[in-house]
Amino acid sequence: MIGIVILGSFIAIIIVAFASIVEKRLADSIVLSMGVGLGSVVLFFIFQAPDVALTEAVIGAGISSVIFLMALKHLKASR
């Protein structure tokens, strides 16, 4: 049962990561890269690393994407 969850998260991470590279619109690509973070949170939690999972959830999926989005807004404003 847990194996299905692990495999599913792996496949989801790969698909989302690939989609975020291929995506032309930067904002969408940032949101997709947030998905990579969320998938890895699941994996870290399953592999018994709750500290890393919490860090990834807060920093990888949360604040870093927000910072990317704000930088994107900054770029658009200066153009």
């Binding site: 500290d51 919490l54 807060v58 920093i59 949360g62 604040i63």
Partner: peptide, 17 residues
């Protein structure tokens, strides 16, 4: 428990955000 300074600090920052 899981967590600590880095995570807690970022959570506080997200509240300000």
């Amino acid at each position: 428990s899981p967590g600590g300074g880095f995570q807690g600090g970022v959570i506080v920052a997200s509240a300000f955000l």
